[in-house]
């Protein structure tokens, strides 16, 4: 019997639905999440099952919705807030970065904040500069937050279960391009330990370090390069905070080379942090400089111009060839 396949959207839906059945206090907040099912349909069916008290459509106000979620969580009700595009995290940032991330610490541990903020990266769809960004590095920069970046349905379910049960403010970054992609998803609820990367492909010559929307292009690049005799190892980070530094070191110490790939713009991106992490723990093993593949440092244009901004498989292949020379 073949394993059950779900899309990433269905896997996230299943994780949340199961947790809502298990924990009657878990509630969902956002805009258009009720009968409409969420902007990208991730919540389809949940409103019908759990009703308007637990799948709560609110006014268009990301700042207060997120702060409201913090308040619910503080009062002992775990909450999942949906922010429709990661671009709108700018509006949610005070509640998330100044309140949720810091409150337990500056309050000497008196409170716990079981809050998950779900938000998708939406890009390459010609939606322009305010609906195409990847802002994960901003969030990773805030101590007190957890940041998940699943690349497939299997991990999305396990990571969502972990995020809900973690008891700390988590930002769960989904990717719109991956919502419809299917993968085997266990029926059982098995959380994935945070801060553990996944070796998506084993190899000995070079480590391709990536996450979310760039995992697939990196795997495709690895296949293409295998035909040319280059054996790539592909690391899917799965969580940016905590970051699996040991996992990165262990791979790079083995391969001696690394390319980091993400769809966010290059400057001060996640790649900078990973590159420096490699310097701190695997410098003596490096046989070539570490190279980053990332978007160009621009507001994202629409139309055909956007294709010149985002990295693709060919960019990864070219970067690997540079490093292998």
């Amino acid at each position: 019997m073949s394993e059950r396949q779900l899309t990433m959207a269905m896997a996230i839906n299943e994780a949340i639905g199961n947790e809502m059945r298990r924990n009657k206090e878990l509630i969902l907040l956002g805009q258009d999440i009720g009968p409409y099912g969420g902007t990208f349909g991730v919540y389809r069916g949940l409103y019908d099952e759990f009703g308007e008290d637990r799948v709560k459509d609110g006014p268009l106000c990301e700042a207060a919705t997120t702060g409201f979620g913090v308040g619910l969580a503080l009062a002992g009700m775990p909450t999942i807030v949906e922010i429709e595009f990661i671009d709108f995290m700018t509006l949610a940032s005070d509640a998330l970065c100044n309140q949720a991330a810091k409150m337990r610490y500056f309050f000497g541990g008196q409170v716990q904040i079981p809050l998950v903020v779900r938000t998708p990266i939406v890009n390459r769809l010609g939606l322009g500069a305010q609906h195409s960004q990847s802002l994960e590095a901003w969030l990773m920069h805030v101590p007190g937050l957890r940041v998940m970046v699943p690349s497939n349905a299997t991990d999305a379910k396990g990571l969502m279960l972990s995020a809900i049960r973690d008891g700390n403010p988590c930002v769960f970054i989904e990717h719109v391009r991956l919502y419809g992609q299917k993968a085997p998803v266990p029926e059982a609820d098995v959380p994935i330990e945070l801060g553990k990367l996944r070796v998506a492909r084993e190899g000995k010559d070079i480590s391709l370090i990536t996450y979310s929307g760039m995992v697939k292009p990196c795997l495709d690049a690895a296949e293409a390069l295998a035909a040319e005799g280059v054996d790539c190892e592909v690391l899917d980070l799965r969580t940016l905070a905590p970051l699996d530094r040991e996992g990165i070191w262990s791979s790079v110490r083995k391969t001696g080379r690394a390319v980091i790939a993400h769809e966010a713009v290059k400057t001060a991106g996640v790649g900078a942090e990973i590159g420096q992490t490699i310097m701190e723990g695997a410098f003596d093993y490096l046989q070539a400089p570490v190279v980053r593949v990332a978007s160009r440092d621009l507001p994202i244009p629409t139309g055909t111009l956007q294709n010149l901004v985002f990295p693709d498989t060919a960019d990864v292949v070219q970067a690997v060839k540079e490093v292998m020379q």
């Binding site: 206090e25 008290d53 700042a63 919705t65 702060g67 913090v70 009700m77 100044n98 309140q99 309050f107």
Partner: peptide
């Protein structure tokens, strides 16, 4: 918390949405 006071919030207005969220928790 034992006295019914969240940590004071030093971002002006920042406590207002949190208080509101707590209000919903009490109502629910």
């Amino acid at each position: 918390v034992d006295k019914g006071m969240l940590p004071a919030i030093a971002i002006v207005g920042g406590g207002i949405p949190l208080a509101t969220g707590m209000g919903l928790a009490f109502k629910m």
